[in-house]
Amino acid sequence: MNWEYIHKFLPLYEKAAGLTIKLGVIGILFAIIIGLACAVIQYYKIPVIRTIVAIYIELSRNTPLLVQLFFLYYGLPKVGISTNAETCGIVGLAFLGGSYMAESFRSGFEAIDQIQEESAMSLGMNTYQTMRYVILPQAVSISVPAFVANIIFLLKETSVFSAISLMDLMFTAKDLIGLYYKTTESLILLVVFYLLILLPVSMFGTWFERRVRYAGFGT
């Protein structure tokens, strides 16, 4: 261990962690929106779009993010769609995460009894109100554990961003190992920074799961 190098590397890691968090948060937000939209489409069984959603979910869930990113970053420019690395990272994470989020929300929707919708209707609520005030709150609270697991999974997946030369934590670590041969210091900082990002999310998730479970929506 050489503290001098740790001190020297620290700002680089801080910058890289900033990028990891930024891309992760934006990508996850898009993933949540896509996932929710897909789950609602599947819930209402809208023809045609529903099939497209099903194909998207299977394609995205059964391929690795790394392969998706390579296609987005190196493949698409060859047919004239060119984007920068950051956009690719966000699009890739949203493409991957959308399907995982969709699956977690879908299991939430599936857990809700038909009677909930019928009761809401008989109270004179329209389709939007039923969805907004009756179905969605219950479905979302049921899917919280899967949702939290997905967020951690997606934050972990951001580690492959270095493959499309984004200067994230992995990239920085690999760079420093190559430049200074300070393997131990670089790896320890890498682990510490990932723990700093992921542990709070994981702890908050556990706390949040317990809270909504005690709220006992619909059960």
Partner: peptide, 19 residues
């Protein structure tokens, strides 16, 4: 479970020589 698998790969691949 919480570490990205790529980090674990780096630890074993680059770290075991040192350790």
């Amino acid at each position: 479970r919480i570490m990205p698998q790529l980090v674990l790969l780096f630890i074993v691949f680059f770290g075991s020589t040192r350790m």
